Simulated assay, not measured.
Amino acid sequence: MSPIAVIDFETTGMSPEQQARATEIGVAIVQDGQIVARYESLMNSGAWVPPFIQQLTGISNAMLHDAPPAAQVMNEVADFVGDIPLMAHNAAFDQKFWDAELALVRRRRVQPFACSLLLSRRLLPQAPSHKLGNLNRWAQLPSTGRAHRALADAEMAANLTCYMSTLLRERHGINDISHELFCTLQKIPAAQIGQVLEGLRQA
C-alpha cells in the first residue's frame, strides 16, 4: 500500500465557518501496514478555547499561549505531508479545517481525502459502534494514548486503516489496496458492498 497521511485536528469548535480554529494537529503516515512517520504540534491562532473544549481535549488557553503560531505549524505540516493522499475519521470535519487553515497561509490542498468512518460502516458493519475509540477497542487495536488529542486519534485512525487493509486482503482476497480504492468503497451503498468486493476479488 502506498503512503497515506492520516490526520486529526483538535479545534475550538465545530466549523471554520463559525470562526472555530485548530488548536492541535497530528499526522500518522501509514505505508505497507504500519505507521512510518509522525507529526504533532499544538498551534496558537489567538483563538479562545471554551471551557468544555478544554475539558474534552485537555488543551488549555495557557498551553496554546506558548505554542508555535498556527501559520508556522500549517506550513510545516503541509511540507511534511506533501502530496500524500489524506485520510481522517469523520473526514468531513478534518477536511474543512485542513482547507481553511491552509487557505490562511495561502496554500491549498492538492490531494483527495478518504474517510475511515465511512469505510468502517461498510467494511465493519458488525461493529457495535463506529466511533473511533470504540472501533479500536472492539478490533483490539493498540492503545495510542488519550482520546481527543490529535496524534493519539490520528494513530488510532491509522491503525484502523491498516486493520481494514488487512481485512480486504485476507478476507476478501483484494491485493491492490490503495487510497483510490478506499475513496471508491466509501461511496458504495452498504447494501451493495458485498457484491462490489466480490467483483474486485474476481477482477
Rank of each mutant, 00 (worst) to 15 (best):
R171N: 10
H148A: 10
R171L: 06
M63H: 11
E101R: 04
I35W: 02
E198T: 12
D83E: 04
W98P: 05
I177G: 02
I29K: 06
I25T: 08
L185I: 04
E101M: 04
E101C: 01
R21W: 01
A150V: 13
V36I: 15
E24P: 04
G194N: 00
T144E: 13
Q192R: 08
Q18N: 14
M43P: 04
R201L: 10
M164D: 03
E24K: 07
K131W: 11
G46A: 09
M1L: 01
N175M: 01
P16G: 08
N61G: 14
E76S: 15
S45H: 00
R137C: 08
G82M: 02
R106P: 02
R106I: 06
S41E: 08
P125V: 03
T11S: 13
L64G: 07
S45T: 11
R137I: 13
N134I: 05
V105S: 02
G145H: 10
F113M: 15
L117Q: 07
P69N: 11
V196E: 09
G199V: 00
C162D: 12
G199D: 13
A47C: 05
K96H: 07
M87P: 05
W48R: 13
E24N: 09
A28K: 05
A158K: 07
I29N: 05
S129N: 07
Q19W: 01
M1C: 01
H148V: 09
A47L: 02
M74L: 07
P3C: 01
R107M: 09
A147E: 12
Q202M: 10
V27E: 09
L56I: 12
P3D: 05
F182P: 00
A114D: 00
C115L: 05
G199E: 11
A154V: 15
S120H: 06
F97N: 07
A127I: 11
P125T: 01
Q195L: 12
L160V: 02
L200P: 03
F80H: 03
L124A: 03
Q18A: 13
S2E: 15
A154K: 09
I84T: 11
A91K: 04
L200S: 02
G194R: 05
V30P: 03
Q140Y: 07
Q202N: 15
E76F: 00
G46V: 14
S178Y: 01
Y39E: 10
A203S: 15
F113W: 10
K187P: 00
E101A: 02
S60I: 10
N61F: 03
P128N: 08
L141S: 07
P69D: 15
A88G: 09
R169K: 10
H179V: 02
L168P: 04
E76K: 12
S60Q: 14
P142W: 03
A70F: 09
E40R: 11
V30R: 00
A103L: 11
S60N: 14
C183F: 01
S178A: 02
P142D: 10
Q34V: 05
K131H: 14
V36C: 00
A203G: 14
V27M: 06
L118I: 09
A22W: 03
S129A: 12
A154D: 13
V49Y: 11
V73W: 05
P51H: 12
H130E: 00
V77N: 04
P112C: 07
L200Q: 06
A37V: 05
P128L: 13
F80M: 00
S60P: 11
D79Y: 00
T12L: 10
E76V: 03
